[in-house]
């Protein structure tokens, strides 16, 4: 199957890209990795008159780290994160999540920012980056604006980005304490969208109490969700069997899944509970292991 005909533009600067989007408005579609857009175009479910390919925009490549945060350029591929062991110490959830996305070949092209902009509720990055409290920088004709991932995601396949805005990168705050993370995904096979996905990261202070926690849920709502109440119940407490169970139950009640061919709503909600419990248990073990190694 072949896409409908379109005109192709490959801008070489951010300004040019924003300008093209402004000029063609709804007629244009932005392409980063293209791993969701091109299949939709081949099935003729999407038929933009203009395709703006941002892969040649140098400002969107690469990543930078500061004392407080990691900034991933919009063209950061899933695979770049999957294979980067340097990120494991401070940003363990990123590598955990990247390795679960789609399949290894798609991961070589697909981008973090593209996944966020596509806003599929089953996508893995949105849940992960919600859990991490990340933000995106969007560049439009009026300059840059910072949008939290939470504010970015409105509905299935819908974001608060204006048609002429481009995500230039994703900012992930750096943890302050000891950190461990776990990403779990139930899928029918590799390459499938998640039946349920859970991404969670926990920071603890010197005393072992939870100082910061993020729990993101995929495929159990019209957008990726953050299990706020479950996070709250963990704050200031130690991870233990009871606290974990409590949090898992709260996370399950935060889920708002629909019944479909991947399972009933009740099933998916219960998987959230099981995965949060397993994820936090794994995190607890990793933190303990880290402490033992440190000591």
């Amino acid at each position: 199957m072949f896409p409908n005909a379109f005109d192709y533009a490959a801008p070489t600067s951010l300004e040019e890209a924003v300008d093209l989007l402004g000029r063609y408005g709804d007629e244009a579609k932005l392409m980063a990795g293209g791993q969701s857009l091109l299949p939709m175009m081949k099935l003729r479910l999407a038929a933009p008159a203009w395709l703006v390919d941002i892969n040649r925009v140098p400002e969107l490549a690469g990543r930078t780290e500061t004392d407080d945060a990691l900034f991933l350029g919009a063209l950061t591929r899933h695979a770049a994160i999957e294979w980067d062991r340097d990120l494991d110490a401070d940003y363990p959830l990123l590598g955990e999540t990247a390795a679960l996305i789609a399949d290894p070949l798609v991961r070589n092209r697909g981008t973090v920012a593209g996944s966020l902009a596509h806003a599929d509720p089953a996508a893995d990055w949105a849940a992960c980056l919600l859990a991490l409290g990340a933000s995106v920088t969007a560049r439009g004709p009026r300059g840059n604006r910072l949008i939290t991932v939470e504010d970015l995601l409105v509905d299935a396949l819908t974001t608060t980005l204006a048609p002429d805005e481009i995500i230039t990168g994703v900012t992930v705050p750096r943890p302050t304490g000891r950190v461990a993370a776990k990403s779990l995904k139930l899928e029918r096979k590799v390459g499938d969208f998640a039946i349920v996905g859970v991404s969670l990261q926990v920071e603890v202070g010197i005393d072992g109490d939870v100082t910061r926690v993020g729990i993101g849920l995929a495929a159990v709502g019209s957008t990726a969700l953050r299990a706020r109440e479950a996070e709250t119940v963990l704050l200031g407490r130690r991870l233990g069997r009871e606290t974990i169970r409590e949090a898992a139950a709260l996370a399950a009640s935060a889920a708002d899944p629909v019944s479909d061919r991947r399972g009933s709503a009740a099933y998916k909600r219960d998987i959230v509970r099981v995965f949060v419990e397993r994820g936090l248990t794994a995190v607890q073990a990793r933190l303990a292991e880290g402490q033992a190694l440190g000591a």
Binding site: M1, Y8, G34, Q35, L38, P39, K42, L43, L51, D53, A79, D103, P104, L105, V106, N108, R109, G191
Partner: peptide, 24 residues
């Protein structure tokens, strides 16, 4: 296939394996 699922079209693009049915 037409959904970037099968990988029969895999080639190396600057050394990186990609599904060439999903690259322009």
């Amino acid at each position: 296939c037409d959904t970037t699922s099968c990988g029969a079209c895999t080639v190396l693009w600057d050394g990186v394996p990609v599904k060439s049915c999903t690259v322009l």
